[in-house]
Design a protein around this nucleic acid. Sequence first.
DNA 1: GACGTTTCCGAACACAGTGTTCGACAACGT
DNA 2: ACGTTGTCGAACACTGTGTTCGGAAACGTC
Lengths: 174, 174
Amino acid sequence: MAEEDRRVRRTRRTLHEALIELVLERGYERLTVQDILDRADVGRSTFYAHFRDKEALLLASFDDIRDRLREDIDAAPDRPATLLFEHAYQHQRVYRALCGRQGGSLVIQHVHGLIGDALREQLAVDGVPAEVVAEFHTSGILGLLVWWIDHDFCHGPEWLAGVYRRLAPSTMAS
Amino acid sequence: MAEEDRRVRRTRRTLHEALIELVLERGYERLTVQDILDRADVGRSTFYAHFRDKEALLLASFDDIRDRLREDIDAAPDRPATLLFEHAYQHQRVYRALCGRQGGSLVIQHVHGLIGDALREQLAVDGVPAEVVAEFHTSGILGLLVWWIDHDFCHGPEWLAGVYRRLAPSTMAS
DNA sequence: GACGTTTCCGAACACAGTGTTCGACAACGT
DNA sequence: ACGTTGTCGAACACTGTGTTCGGAAACGTC
């Protein structure tokens, strides 16, 4: 009974798809709510009945995937980078739209928080606060991710995970 | 004879100062051109005689500092991270406004390019493309920088440079 | 299949912010 | 004291936002 009405599902799904399409075509910043409405063929008032603004739609579009990523990380918290790379590889289209250079930086920030939280409890280096170590690694991992996305996912996720392990030997986490 | 007119200097300086102030107070994204005009007490048409938009003002405000940073890096290209940290420490107010979390991400992107270019020619790790190594390190360094800024420059620049050296021992660059 | 409910549409609206124009005036450097 | 150049301020057209509301259509349920 939670999601009973088909029309609601249809509207939200259509809007999400339109957003992804348009971000890939023209980049998030350049998009207008009206652009999304036209592409999705959804009425203006309908949009605002579902989302507060463009940003809310963006974040909602990432909700499902983020939840799954979080679950995976919770299940195996000792190798968040590997999980992130595999996850992105499985959802290339969405990750390209939301985490690539043309996506809004908001989603990246969320992922940053996710990975940062996981790393903070895994990493330890003598004489350096765990917070700082985690920050360095998280930023590095996301740098690798964005590079990978912008290079069309050349190489598999194992390769990238190997690169990370090679570049950050100061700890056990991968 | 290049910059003869005092009025021009005054206008540009006032606008830059107003921008920095307001970014520190309310964040770049939330700012209106009109806000900047009010704070600087400069006419609307005058603003557009100098800058195409808010973004152009932001980048111009970073021009001087960026040039000096580039010169420093060119002079000692083997330790770009250390130079960046020292540079930020010397210009805390501007860096806080332009590279902190509340600054537009544009300036950060510029710095990213600067550091990335320098690192790409310094780093080498067997079996990993230099491009990827540089991307990882650059992102990590900028992560450290942002963390440092957001923690009010606690510790000196040497400390942060030491942290970086400790976390990224896969190369000689510091 | 008929029902009451929920959602959607679409047009209208007020509003905020952008970037441009122009004439009058003031400040400038020489 | 001069001609030049920058600034002001008000007006304007324009784009995009977020809201409102009544009528129509689709929905789930019984």
